[in-house]
Amino acid sequence: MVLQTNLQLIRNLEKLGLTENEAKTYIGLVSLREATAREIHELTNVPRAKIYEILKVLAKKRLSGSETGISNVFPSS
């Protein structure tokens, strides 16, 4: 049931203009509330190398916050 719910949520987010990987990353980030790129990758299976770029896109769309500095922790908005 959880998988079906997430698949439906991914499809709904795609209808709003997100790519599949953006939707998965967004769901993962919201689920974790605050996470590193590694934690998001482990939860979503989105390639870790793409997480950073996707987080930038989500921040531009105002769907995530961003922390700068030493820490690489990304808060959900």
Rank of each mutant, 00 (worst) to 15 (best):
L3A: 15
L3K: 15
Q4D: 12
N6A: 13
L7F: 02
L7M: 11
Q8P: 03
Q8D: 04
L9Q: 11
I10F: 10
N12C: 08
N12Q: 14
L13K: 00
K15N: 13
L16I: 01
T19S: 15
N21E: 14
N21H: 08
N21Y: 13
E22H: 09
E22Q: 14
A23Q: 08
A23E: 06
K24V: 02
T25D: 05
Y26L: 15
Y26S: 02
Y26V: 00
Y26E: 01
Y26H: 00
I27V: 13
G28I: 03
S31W: 02
S31R: 03
S31D: 08
L32N: 09
L32K: 10
R33I: 05
R33L: 09
A35P: 12
A37K: 13
E42I: 00
E42H: 10
L43H: 05
N45Y: 06
N45A: 15
N45P: 03
A49K: 11
I51Y: 08
Y52G: 03
E53T: 10
L55Q: 06
L55D: 00
L55S: 00
A59E: 05
K61T: 01
K61C: 01
S64R: 05
S64I: 07
G65D: 10
E67T: 14
T68L: 11
S71A: 14
N72C: 12
N72R: 13
V73I: 12
S76H: 14
S76D: 12
S77P: 11
S77G: 06
